[in-house]
Design a protein around this nucleic acid. Structure first.
Length: 936
RNA sequence: GGGCGGUUAGCUCAGCUGGUCAGAGCGCCUGCCUUACAAGCAGGAGGUCGCAGGUUCGAGCCCUGCACUGCCCA
């Protein structure tokens, strides 16, 4: 059967086909191990960071997924039990907002709909639009196990969420209380510290006079000036605080002041926390609207007056300002203060203002009753797991960042005032007011109050922070909390997972929470042998690889407002998935952001085209050979290519090269050096295989003459085995094109259903060690030939020899090189465009009319009767001599230095000696050549 | 304010525990439609490794200071 490949590579023609094939054939499913099946420990388990159901694929996803896919495919081909588990996150706020917008367009609201109908509506939305991002992922060819796809609100995951809450509650690690939280007036919910982004903003610092009162409550005429950036909060002031040692205010200790506008008497208190240097050294205290003031209020038992409602409008506690938006109120208050002569000063001030991560609204610190996780006990284990090395970070510096954050962690506010999410499993009693949380391991909802027995209980309306459920994923996807003898196979086989690949932006949101929750709950599950699970086996993953941010070509962060967002799907349809994947891989060096440049992608599309055409060339010759009765054996393909010891130099050279590149690629991938691995393959395939080996092989594939079948067959079997191994090597990076060519290579009967099930080229250590000395000299001979070829072509260019013309050369070189040349005569003559060689040991010193080139062990000239450009030659030689002299001087200085000779390692000294000797020879030759030039 | 990175060719970036490390791709120049590929082939030019000190026989690599720049946390 003849192969048919179009001349130019067209990714769109093949990618959809294979993407669908992989899913349809269920090639990447990793079944639950059968009971009693031996777990050999060679497993690779990785969890996809679940994208939001509302999400669309962006470049960050694509980088993340490309890296995970490369690793998963690589380990799968390496023989591991590989499982990559996909799913989506219900994304509380984001999804709720999406559906609310939809409702708004219809002139409705969730309040009109009511909670249940609204939830049904969101589910509906999810069923219709929620899978979009997963469909996009399929287009990228990700090798995930679709049979295990989850959604964080799935029944079984919801069970886990409820159980986690219940356990933590009964362990005394969940409490409810009124604290200052970050309140988003737009989303109308509390958000965690992590969901607040701080931005510098120019604003004002208002200084306000609070009149000091005497014991009778009358103005003394004196006043105390406080500074504030949020004057509207003064409506809720319940004290003024000064530093106890501040001499300016000592006489006011214990006195009272009149709160302007509200005409409330509030005390002057003293507290060490007050900074004497900030503003006037006196601060207003608003316990219900500032976390520091809240702490102050607790210490001094101050009343906490909340003056704002959920939408950040002043409430009834705000007197005359009730009903005003916070910023309207601010203006009016400033105006009124000024009118009353109580505004002492207005200063420009830049401060950090918190914004809602989701909607960018300015966050209002606000007193509110919320649910919290007492985090320290969980954090302690999470710290231990990392400090003891049970979880390793790459790059390593994230370990420090993680530990630093963990050491300064605050209790986690887990309640959200949303309707979409896991509703908190706690019931309030209308009679006694106490809270009932179901017992451990129970399933049904409680029917009566656990404290007074009343049946008048209603479930908490708040839902849990989305990260509470995603933080449980590593345990919950494998069946926790229902792990018993009958269903523990998944957990035994796949927990802990091997690796987590993610961006640093969710290091705290997600990675840290998974570590805390995993280390907290997994120890409840016994090890397969029945022993207690140690912390080292409780971690949710053993390694974390943190990748960089994808920026645009100008290193700008991609953002919708800037309009510089690159849509991966758009680029993929233009250049092909393989090219985009390769771009990301080749730029993914740890620690640095990726400036995504399509110029680079163009280059890798060209690379794909190169691979395509190399295959075309080889296939065409295989077909031609078949016509001539030469059948190339394909049965031995699939391993590491080898070659007989008496094979031609170039065969041994290319085989050695692919063995070497395999070893390097494997090493690089072990260290997540996608960039290195990609570059090795690229250099090898394009440089060594296509530009050198195939060009050489063409000489042997000459069907026009009386065919030497043995020669053609030998050449073809090297070509095809190197191609086939290269495809496997490249497959994790470029799964589509490699699959297509690989399938064609086997002409419809491949040894596996997919190249993804073939074995990755890995060289066994023992074999590479054999005959290494001989191999070394072999490679050196080949390198010499190639260097000589380049020198000759360069010389020809300088002389202006026509491209098509071959010329005689004169060459002086050692016998060994001469022997290699003679043995490789057929291709060497063709590639170096040589018609005949005159070997001459005195080359370079005679024939002054020739233009000589010299290497460390050869002197060569192209015989071509064109007058030399003496001036240009002289310039080139002088430049070269200068360079060599510099090199020689520095080398000789080292060798003359007794310290160098005694303290540097032997191989360095030897290397330096060799270099100096070589430089001397070259210098001598260059000087001779210069002297031989005719005078100007 | 605290912490962590970065500064290497025109551009984007590699460069391991100091010693054949001054590299790659793109771009640029010159010549080629050579038995796959012009998305190609061949040959070439281009850098005092941010600045100033120091350690060392030896410094893009280690130390100190400075400059510029990015990020995280308060």
């Amino acid at each position: 059967m003849a192969h048919e490949l179009p001349k130019a590579y067209d990714p769109t023609a093949i990618e959809d086909h294979w993407a669908a094939y992989w899913v349809r054939e269920r090639l990447f499913e990793q079944p639950t191990p059968a009971a009693g099946e031996r777990l050999d420990g060679k497993s690779f388990v990785i969890l996809l960071p679940p994208p939001n159901v509302t999400g669309r694929l962006h470049m960050g996803h694509m980088l993340n997924q490309t890296e995970m896919d490369i690793l998963t495919r690589w380990r799968r081909m390496g023989g591991d039990r590989a499982l990559w588990l996909p799913g989506t996150d219900h994304a509380g706020i984001a999804t709720q907002m999406m559906v609310e917008r939809q409702l708004a367009a219809e002139g409705a609201s969730r309040q009109q709909l009511g909670r249940e109908a609204f939830e049904a509506r969101v589910w509906d939305w999810k069923r219709h639009y929620g899978g979009a991002i997963l469909e996009q992922m399929k287009r990228l060819g990700v090798s995930v196990d679709w049979s295990r796809e989850y959604f964080t609100m799935d029944e079984r995951l919801s069970v886990a969420v409820r159980e986690a809450f219940v356990r933590l509650y009964h362990q005394g690690l969940i409490y409810r209380g009124a604290y200052i939280v970050n309140w988003c007036p737009r989303c109308q919910t509390a958000i965690s510290d992590l969901e607040v982004t701080h931005e510098e903003q120019k604003g004002h610092l208002w200084e306000v006079r609070y009149p000091v009162l005497d014991l009778a409550g009358k103005d003394t005429g004196e006043s105390i000036t406080v500074a504030t950036t949020r004057p509207e909060t003064m409506l809720g002031d319940t004290a003024v605080a000064v530093h106890p040692d501040d001499e300016r205010y000592k006489h006011l200790h214990g006195k009272k002041v009149r709160l302007p506008l509200m005409n409330r008497e509030i005390p002057v208190i003293t507290d060490e926390w007050v900074s004497r240097d900030f503003g006037t050294g006196a601060v207003k205290v608003t316990p219900a609207h500032d976390p520091n003031d809240f702490a102050l209020g607790e210490r001094h038992h101050l009343p906490k007056i909340n003056v704002m409602d959920e939408t950040a409008h002043i409430n009834s506690e705000g007197g005359a300002y009730a009903g005003l938006d916070r910023y309207v109120a601010r203006k009016k208050i400033v105006h009124d203060l000024e009118a009353q002569g109580l505004l002492a000063a207005v200063k420009d001030y830049t401060n950090n203002v918190g914004h809602c991560d989701r909607c960018k609204t300015v966050v209002e610190p606000r007193l509110s009753t919320q649910w919290f996780v007492k985090i320290q006990p969980l954090a302690d284990r999470a710290i231990e797991a990392v400090e003891k090395g049970y979880i390793r970070f790459t790059p390593e510096n994230y370990k420090k960042i993680y530990l630093n954050w963990m050491a300064n962690i605050y209790d986690w506010c887990i309640s959200r005032q949303l309707w979409w999410g896991h509703r908190i499993p706690a019931w309030h009693c209308a009679v006694c007011g106490k809270i009932t949380v179901p017992g451990l391991g129970t399933t049904g909802d409680p029917k009566e109050c656990a404290h007074c027995g009343s049946g008048e209980i209603t479930q908490e309306t708040d839902v849990l922070d989305t990260w509470f459920s995603s933080g449980l994923l590593p345990v919950s996807v494998f069946g926790w909390p229902k792990i018993d003898e009958t269903n523990r196979a998944d957990f035994d086989a796949f927990y802990p997972t091997t690796l987590l690949v993610t961006g640093f932006d969710i290091l705290f949101f997600w990675v840290a929470r998974m570590i805390m929750l995993g280390c907290w709950f997994a120890p409840d599950i016994k090890m397969p042998d029945g022993s207690d699970r140690p912390l080292a086996e409780s971690v949710p993953f053993r390694e974390v690889y943190i990748h960089a941010l994808v920026r645009d070509a100008n290193r700008e962060k991609m953002s919708k407002t800037k309009g510089n967002v690159l849509d991966p799907i758009e680029i993929v349809s233009k250049y092909g998935t393989d090219a985009v994947r390769f771009t990301l891989a080749s730029m993914a060096s740890p620690g640095t952001d990726i400036a995504f440049n399509v110029a680079r992608t163009e280059g890798y599309r060209a690379f794909a085209n190169k691979i395509w055409n190399a295959a075309r060339f080889i296939f065409r010759n295989v077909d031609k050979a078949a016509e001539a009765g030469v059948i190339v054996d394909r049965s031995a393909l699939g391993g590491m290519p080898t070659v007989a010891d008496d094979a031609p130099l170039e065969d041994r050279w290319i085989i050695d090269a692919i063995q070497g590149v395999s070893a390097r690629v494997n090493d690089s991938l072990k260290e997540y050096r996608f960039d290195e691995a990609a570059s090795y393959i690229y250099q090898f395939f394009w440089g060594s295989f296509c530009d050198t080996y195939i060009e050489i092989a063409k000489v042997r594939l000459d069907f026009s003459n009386e065919p030497t079948k043995y020669q053609i067959k030998a050449a073809l079997s090297v070509l095809i085995s190197v191609l086939e191994a290269s495809l496997r090597l490249l497959s994790p990076f470029m799964p589509f094109i490699t699959e297509e060519i690989w399938q064609q290579l086997f002409e419809g009967s491949p040894p596996e259903r997919s190249i993804a099930h073939a074995r990755y080229p890995i060289i066994e250590i023992g074999r590479i060690g054999a005959a290494i000395g001989e191999k070394d000299s072999l490679i050196r001979q080949m390198d010499r030939l190639l260097t000589l070829k380049t020198e000759l072509l360069s010389l020809r260019k300088e002389l202006g020899v026509e491209e098509k013309m071959s010329t005689p050369i004169v060459l002086g070189c050692p016998p060994k090189l001469q022997e290699s040349i003679e043995r490789s005569r057929s291709w060497f003559f063709r590639l170096a465009k040589v018609s005949e060689i005159e070997y001459d040991q005195s080359a370079g010193t005679n024939h002054p009319e020739l233009k000589w080139r010299f290497g460390s062990d050869f002197v060569v000239a192209v015989v071509y009767n064109k007058p030399n450009d003496v001036a240009a030659d002289r310039e080139r030689l002088m430049k070269e001599i200068a360079k060599l002299e510099k090199q020689l001087v520095s080398g000789e200085r080292d060798l003359a230095n007794p310290n160098f000779v005694s303290s540097a390692p032997a191989h360095v000294v030897d290397g330096r000696k060799k270099l100096v000797a070589e430089t001397r020879v070259l210098l001598e030759k260059a000087r001779a050549a210069l002297a031989a030039l005719p005078p100007e």
